[in-house]
Amino acid sequence: MIQLRYCLIVLLTLVTAGCGALKSPAYSPDYQVLDNLKNKQLLNVSVAPVEPTDPEAKVNKISLRAASLTTDQGTFSAYFEQSMIQDLTEMGIYQPSSNVQIKATLVENNIDISSFSKGHGKMIVDLEIHKSSVLTFSKQYIGETEFESSFAGAVAIPKAQSEYPYLVRELLKQIYSDPEFIKELSK
């Protein structure tokens, strides 16, 4: 009888773990990368709304098997935008009125947990820098992560949910570590 109850509880947990919407955890900066940039003389920058802003755009929807991942910012584009603003603020160079503006478009945004043992995240962004409305820099950046996963949805889904901020951090690390990006923002 106890085994039957245990089996029912496990089955119910597995079924409900894959249903509904899950929230992405809050972004946390890579302070080592930010500290490296703090030592450089960089221009103050503003950040344009990251495209696409449409919540129905493919990059603003992430499916984790039977569950969907969502964000408090409403879209993953806005999540990326707020993460970048948080980093630039930490570096002391974010200024909303600056005529040096970063514009970004999410091209790909996905967490894949279809494998039995590994999960993968991939995010691609097209990034531009405009100075006084003149395009001065344009480049595509790719961030990728790999993490332990499981065939069991009750394990894989929460793990993928917790990994999303690391994917964003990895993409931003690629941007902030790029000598061309640093040179473009240097005084």
Results as ranks from 00 to 15, higher is better:
residue 47 V to H: 14
residue 174 Q to Y: 10
residue 87 D to Y: 06
residue 147 F to V: 09
residue 19 C to E: 15
residue 179 P to S: 10
residue 177 S to D: 14
residue 108 E to W: 00
residue 80 F to L: 09
residue 43 L to N: 03
residue 103 K to V: 02
residue 29 P to S: 10
residue 146 E to T: 12
residue 77 S to C: 03
residue 119 G to H: 02
residue 138 S to M: 04
residue 51 E to S: 08
residue 32 Q to W: 11
residue 159 K to E: 01
residue 3 Q to I: 10
residue 47 V to R: 13
residue 113 I to T: 00
residue 98 S to W: 01
residue 21 A to F: 03
residue 65 R to T: 13
residue 21 A to G: 09
residue 159 K to L: 11
residue 87 D to W: 05
residue 133 S to P: 15
residue 158 P to C: 12
residue 24 S to A: 13
residue 35 D to H: 10
residue 185 L to N: 13
residue 149 S to Q: 12
residue 177 S to E: 12
residue 96 P to H: 00
residue 178 D to C: 08
residue 24 S to K: 02
residue 94 Y to N: 13
residue 6 Y to V: 11
residue 120 H to A: 05
residue 84 M to V: 04
residue 28 S to R: 10
residue 49 P to W: 05
residue 168 V to L: 02
residue 121 G to K: 00
residue 104 A to L: 00
residue 109 N to S: 01
residue 77 S to F: 01
residue 31 Y to G: 12
residue 18 G to T: 09
residue 96 P to I: 03
residue 38 K to H: 14
residue 152 A to P: 12
residue 45 V to T: 06
residue 72 D to N: 11
residue 102 I to F: 03
residue 71 T to I: 12
residue 8 L to G: 14
residue 107 V to M: 06
residue 127 L to D: 01
residue 76 F to M: 12
residue 74 G to T: 01
residue 36 N to P: 05
residue 61 K to R: 13
residue 12 L to H: 01
residue 13 T to D: 07
residue 163 E to I: 07
residue 152 A to G: 13
residue 44 N to C: 15
residue 84 M to Y: 11
residue 61 K to M: 14
residue 143 G to S: 08
residue 40 K to G: 04
residue 25 P to F: 01
residue 174 Q to M: 09
residue 154 A to D: 14
residue 71 T to H: 06
residue 126 D to N: 02
residue 137 F to S: 01
residue 121 G to L: 00
residue 15 V to P: 08
residue 114 S to A: 09
residue 148 E to H: 15
residue 38 K to I: 10
residue 121 G to C: 02
residue 82 Q to W: 06
residue 11 L to A: 13
residue 157 I to M: 06
residue 55 P to A: 04
residue 8 L to D: 05
residue 70 T to Q: 01
residue 106 L to G: 00
residue 6 Y to K: 06
residue 163 E to Y: 11
residue 139 K to G: 07
residue 103 K to D: 06
residue 51 E to H: 03
residue 145 T to V: 08
residue 175 I to V: 04
residue 141 Y to W: 08
residue 167 L to G: 06
residue 61 K to D: 15
residue 92 G to H: 01
residue 130 H to Y: 12
residue 179 P to Q: 13
residue 179 P to K: 13
residue 3 Q to D: 04
residue 128 E to V: 03
residue 156 A to G: 08
residue 31 Y to C: 11
residue 146 E to R: 10
residue 46 S to R: 05
residue 187 K to Y: 10
residue 147 F to A: 10
residue 89 T to H: 09
residue 11 L to G: 07
residue 98 S to G: 01
residue 24 S to M: 12
residue 180 E to T: 15
residue 53 T to C: 15
residue 60 N to G: 09
residue 94 Y to T: 05
residue 84 M to D: 09
residue 50 V to S: 11
residue 48 A to R: 09
residue 63 S to R: 13
residue 39 N to V: 15
residue 164 Y to C: 12
residue 154 A to F: 08
residue 69 L to Y: 04
residue 25 P to G: 05
residue 79 Y to T: 04
residue 144 E to M: 15
residue 4 L to A: 10
residue 40 K to N: 06
residue 123 M to D: 14
residue 33 V to P: 05
residue 49 P to T: 04
residue 78 A to T: 08
residue 155 V to P: 11
residue 75 T to Y: 03
residue 167 L to P: 07
residue 103 K to A: 05
